[in-house]
């Protein structure tokens, strides 16, 4: 279980301080699929970096199974937005996926078996010997997902993972992620700016405001599973949920619940 309470993150200090996140509180239960949506420019990536231990919050806490995070934990794997930048072009697909396993599994045979299983899960069994730049964008992102899966995490964090692929590939990858979740039961936390995607994938959608971000509301997604790109999206309930999230995002943010001393931090002495 991942618990975030009163997370706040400010970059810089003094006159140049930029407050990316003001006040975030959320809980992700084991096995849950949570999507976080927010307008472009909300502190979504900042938040994910705090959640996976890459960034230290300015205040507030992130705890995993009751233990406060101190650096990247071994229970969390990340899939980054830009596959062309997050895969190592000097390694083959197999070595890319196997790289994080070096500290987990001593035996090379053990590592190879796990890499093979992960590649099979994303349908890339026959591409292990290729280099990332020999693959299409969608396939590269599948490699990144396989790398996350091979790590056998409790929680998979995905930062706008389908933002740089075309629409058809995007739908395929969404379904791939759903299938992987069903097969492995891994907890998923996915950040996106696409409302349809969030509603389609999630058990619960957390809506964030523009910077400085706060949680506007949480929407429970009670759509039946398994989901389907055509039939699920035709359901009247899908349209309702979608409208609900959209309304939340478009409504101007009210920060009345936050303490006053946070406001206009850049202008204060």
């Amino acid at each position: 279980m991942l618990t975030v309470s009163n997370l706040q993150k400010t970059y810089g200090s003094g006159d140049q301080a930029v407050e990316a996140i003001r006040d975030l509180t959320l809980t992700v239960d084991k096995g849950e699929f949570v999507c976080i949506v927010g307008p472009s420019g909300a502190g979504k990536s900042t938040m994910l970096k705090c959640l996976c231990g890459l960034l230290q919050p300015s205040s507030g806490t992130v705890t995993l199974n009751g233990v406060p995070l101190n650096g990247p934990p071994k229970e969390i794997a990340s899939v980054f937005q830009d596959y062309s930048r997050s895969l190592m072009p000097w390694f083959t697909v197999r070595r890319n996926v196997g790289l994080p396993l070096r500290n987990r599994h001593r035996s090379a045979a053990d590592r190879a078996a796990r890499v093979a299983t992960a590649l099979e899960a994303v349908g890339l069994t026959s591409f292990g010997g290729r280099y990332p730049w020999q693959l299409s964008g969608g396939m590269q992102q599948r490699v990144a997902i396989a790398r996350g899966l091979a790590y056998a995490p409790e929680i998979l964090l995905l930062d706008e993972p389908f933002a740089s692929v075309d629409a058809q590939t995007r739908a395929d990858l969404e379904d791939l992620i759903l299938r992987v979740r069903d097969d492995t039961g891994v907890t998923m936390l996915l950040v996106t700016h696409d409302i349809d995607e969030a509603v389609y994938l999630a058990d619960r959608v957390v809506v964030m405001s523009a910077r400085p971000s706060v949680v506007l509301d949480t929407v429970e997604v009670d759509l039946p599973r398994p989901r389907d790109q055509v039939t699920t999206k035709q359901l009247p309930r899908f349209a309702e949920l979608r409208a609900q999230v959209l309304t939340l995002i478009r409504r101007p943010a009210h920060h009345d619940s936050t303490p006053d001393h946070h406001s206009k931090i850049g202008e204060r002495r």
Binding site: K49, C52, G53, L54, P72, K74, I76, A77, S78, F80, D82, R85, S86, M88, L99, P100, R102, N103, R147, Y151
Partner: peptide, 14 residues
Amino acid sequence: DPELEDVARSYRLT
């Protein structure tokens, strides 16, 4: 690329 460093750190490479 800082992204590569993020990858390396988040997967706890030494």
